[in-house]
Design a protein around this nucleic acid. Structure first.
Length: 625
DNA sequence: CTTAGGG
DNA sequence: CCCTAAG
């Protein structure tokens, strides 16, 4: 493979070979379109599908950068996030830390524009700078529509071939090639409603409701193979930092495209990649476990010949029948699970400006470095955020428990009451506690250090939110999603809300999680110099047991010092011997009594002789002459 | 998982 | 302390 050769030669200025492309034959006459069901997909699923098809056709894995611009202010926070994608584009994106499936979809559904930039997947920074863009996917999102345009920077001519990748098998209507000569009812942005009705009429959602096409599809695509854990095992450092069993089981997720992936010679690079794999799996796992709700609408793809979005596919977000009836009978008591999509005038806009963390209690050894403190805090926060966090909605201090209530029914849409609205982020108890059981570090032997395991007290988070009743018509925002005036207007209308007091603050203990983004940065254990009593215990044990039985030494003298591994003890002995041999002036750290050092030397000499002796004995046994 | 050694 | 090759 071209990649492999390139990489093994160690080239840094890596250029993408201009080889794999869509088959030329696909150009003139569209190749048989691949059947991908999209009718039940939500906006991002569809996008992911487009992307995946794109990638499959390209036979490359890639890195996805997305940039979102929205008329709401919240989106700015996720501007320019980036994701590494293996073969699993979707799961990677969905489970990326704070940007999980639901939140991403929520963002995506709201009006605006999201640009997805697919780059070839390369592992090292140097290579990434040289990465080229495989494709650019622009999504214009309105209330009920997503317009997705794929722009191939490498080879614009290939647009035709790509567009045929998406087909709604449900309706049997194929998506004509982008830019093809078709009117498709002459739909445009301004005739959105008509499109929806037309498509709903054709829809047979009743038959397919509850199906989770997207989920199934990706579950298949991303199912880990679990072919042994040999390579992943190497990730395990000391047992106190070992990844979760989940991560170990992850196996060879990326093996599918192994052959087209660069093989790195450098150990460092390999290691980095393996870590990425590990996290990738976890995200994938999370996705598989997540409930994928498709009950709130479906998608239909059809071609559009709108002058504004020429060369774009148009994807109409179709509400279910219930949605439509809701929209018509707004005042009626609708209790369906499906959110109702109402005219823009009736939308309630909330913008959560920040979440406050009332208290974050962290316990860490005094001799820990600032860097490790930072990491601990980071991991703790990430653990909370990426863990089972759920949102509580409070109105006038009362928690709204019924998830099925509409905004309207809850009274939130009433502008006057927005002042009393609050959101809380509530950590999931079971999840964090579960992880807490992984690490504990009692230290009876050395009382010097305090407990390693950081404990974090978490109250519920209070959200300081602002809300604005946006009454202006936003139809134009489809065409100009980044209209600055809109943003300004919202900013001016917004007013701070009184945060609701947290209910039932819970004290939790959290530990560095392995399923968070932060855990990908494998932390070096903090340095913990041996105390003199420890050295003494070590010397005593070695005098008794010798220098080749570090496990026994550990068991004998450091049984309760969980942070001292037998490797540590062996290393310490090594440095002790060295220390004993150098002049006292050259020694650093807490001075070790000369008496001990002398014992180190004699013990070392003695056991060295013993070792040599037994070696000679063994030699004679095997080769007696 | 342990040992032994280089980094 | 880390990382690995070997056993």
């Amino acid at each position: 493979m071209v990649f492999q050769k390139r990489m093994e030669s160690g080239s840094i200025g890596y250029k993408i070979p201009k080889k794999p492309r869509f088959p030329r034959s696909a150009r003139g006459k569209p190749s048989p379109p691949k059947k991908v069901e999209v009718s039940q997909m939500r906006p991002f699923d569809l996008l992911a599908t487009v992307a995946e098809e794109l990638l499959l056709a390209k036979k490359k894995s890639c890195r996805l950068l997305y940039e979102a611009e929205e008329t709401t202010s919240t989106i700015n926070k996720i501007k320019k996030e980036q994701f590494d994608t293996g073969s699993s584009l979707k799961s990677d994106v969905f489970d990326q830390g704070s940007c999980d499936e639901s939140s991403f979809v929520a963002r995506f559904v709201s009006r605006g524009q999201v640009t997805f930039n697919f780059e070839e997947h390369l592992s090292s920074p140097e290579e990434r700078t040289a990465a080229s863009t495989l494709a650019l996917v622009k999504c214009h999102v309105s209330e009920k529509n997503a317009f997705i345009g794929i722009h191939n920077l490498e080879d614009p001519v290939d647009l035709d071939a790509k567009s045929t990748a998406l087909v709604s098998s449900d309706s049997g209507v194929e998506i004509p090639p982008i830019g093809g000569h078709h009117s498709a009812g002459g739909s445009s942005f301004s005739s959105v409603r008509g499109d929806i009705e037309l498509l709903v009429n054709k829809d047979d959602d009743e038959n397919s409701s509850g199906r989770t096409h997207g989920s199934n599809m990706y579950a298949r695509a991303f199912k880990p193979h679990c072919t042994g854990d040999g390579r992943v095992r190497k990730l395990t450092k000391s047992k106190y930092w070992k990844p979760s069993r989940e991560a170990m089981d992850y196996g060879e997720l990326w093996n599918d495209d192994e052959e087209i992936k660069p093989v790195f010679r450098s150990r460092k690079l390999c290691y980095t990649r393996q870590r990425t794999k590990r996290s990738s799996f976890k995200r994938s796992k999370l996705f598989e476990g997540s409930t994928f709700s498709s009950s709130n609408g479906g998608f239909r793809s059809k071609a559009v010949s709108d002058p504004f979005v020429k060369d774009c596919m148009k994807l109409d977000y179709i509400g279910t029948h219930a949605d439509l009836s809701n929209a018509h009978g707004r005042s009626g008591s609708t209790t369906g699970h499906t959110p109702s999509y109402e005219p823009v005038e009736n939308h309630v806009k909330l913008s959560i400006k920040s979440f406050r963390v009332p208290e974050l209690f962290i316990e860490i050894p005094a001799n820990a470095t600032i860097g490790s403190l930072k990491r601990t805090v980071m991991e703790a926060v990430t653990a909370i955020l990426s863990g089972g966090l759920h949102v509580g909605v409070h109105l006038k201090g009362k928690k709204i428990k019924d998830d099925n209530k509409t905004i309207l029914q809850a009274g939130i849409s009433d502008t006057d009451k927005l002042d009393n609205l609050g959101f809380t982020l509530e950590p999931n108890l079971s999840r964090i506690q579960h992880h807490n059981s992984c690490i504990s570090d009692p230290e009876p032997l050395t009382k010097i250090h305090s407990t390693l395991a950081p404990a974090i007290d978490i109250g519920t988070f209070n959200a300081v939110i602002s809300a604005s009743d946006c009454t202006e018509s936003d139809h134009d925002s489809v065409h100009s999603p980044t209209n600055p005036s809109t943003i300004d207007k919202m900013a001016n209308n917004s007013k701070a809300l009184v945060p609701i007091l947290a209910l039932n603050p819970v004290a939790l203990a959290a530990v560095p999680l392995s399923n968070s983004k932060a855990s990908e940065i494998v932390q070096r254990r903090i340095r913990r110099p041996f105390s003199v009593p420890e050295v003494e215990a070590l010397v005593l044990a070695v005098e008794k047991l010798g220098t080749g039985r570090w496990r026994d030494v550990k068991l004998r003298a450091f049984e309760n010092a969980k942070h001292r591994t037998y490797v540590d003890l062996k290393d310490k002995w090594k440095t002790l011997v060295h220390t004993a041999r150098i002049s006292p002036q050259q020694r650093r750290g807490e001075p070790v009594p000369q008496e001990l050092l002398d014992r180190v030397l004699s013990a070392h000499a003695y056991w060295s002789r013993q070792q040599a002796k037994s070696a000679r004995l063994a030699e004679r046994c095997h080769r007696p002459v």
